[in-house]
């Protein structure tokens, strides 16, 4: 069974379900995306109140090319693993964080995943930034509000922000944030900075 992110720490077998309080009335979601092995599941795990869960979605795609899902011939079915976590924000509202593979071949999943999302955190490993080009382009194309989150591995090189912005070919609206995804506090600061960015943008541009 093909698994999209088996190099990330494995989300364990589901323990007993941890139910939401009965007062909860709805949920919102944020995507955590980026290339294979960038630390998506680690970040989700640092933020989540439950052990990250793994679920699978089958994806039917044309075996050559990516866009022709309606073509008659040459379809293949792949199973994609999605890891996700949850934060109960207050007695009424829950937030789900979906680790979303960012490579082009997983784009057939993106319509379902991104519909209704508040935004996306696009994780980047500066030791191999080119692997993030696909997903950054996709986010801009789909006009999903996002921030770049540089996962600071011990040997992550540092660049001046302008240089990095130009290397990643980022539009001015997307902030660049830094975070050690393993650290709960740092992960929370990252998520708070991101939502604060969404909030400010939404206040400034209510027509978005």
């Amino acid at each position: 069974m093909a698994s999209a992110n088996s190099a990330d720490p494995v989300a364990g077998p589901p323990a007993a379900p941890q139910y939401l309080p009965p007062s909860v009335q709805g949920a919102v979601k944020i995507l955590v995306t980026g290339p294979f092995g960038v630390g998506k599941t680690t970040l989700v795990g640092s933020l989540s109140e439950i052990s990250p869960l793994r679920t699978e979605e089958t994806m039917t795609a044309a075996s050559s090319g990516v866009d022709d899902l309606t073509g008659r011939g040459g379809k293949t079915t792949t199973t994609v693993a999605l890891d996700f976590g949850r934060i109960t924000l207050n007695p009424r509202l829950a937030l789900y964080l979906f680790g979303t593979p960012g490579q082009q071949r997983f784009w057939p999943l993106w319509d379902d995943l991104s519909r209704g999302a508040l935004g996306a955190i696009a994780m980047v490993d500066l030791r191999r930034p080119d692997e993030s080009f696909d997903v950054l382009g996709r986010l801009e194309e789909q006009q999903i509000p996002f921030a770049v989150a540089v996962n600071t591995f011990p040997d992550t090189p540092s660049y001046p922000e302008e240089e990095l912005r130009s290397a990643l070919d980022l539009l001015p609206g997307a902030p660049i944030l830094y975070c050690d995804a393993r650290d709960r506090r740092a992960a929370y600061d990252l998520l708070i900075d991101f939502v604060d960015h969404l909030y400010r943008t939404s206040v400034l541009e209510p027509q978005r």
């Binding site: 207050n90 508040l118 998520l191």
Partner: peptide, 11 residues
């Protein structure tokens, strides 16, 4: 905006 504010306050 109010939804984002609610998320922010919760976090």
């Amino acid at each position: 905006t109010t939804l984002l504010e609610e998320v922010l306050v919760g976090l």
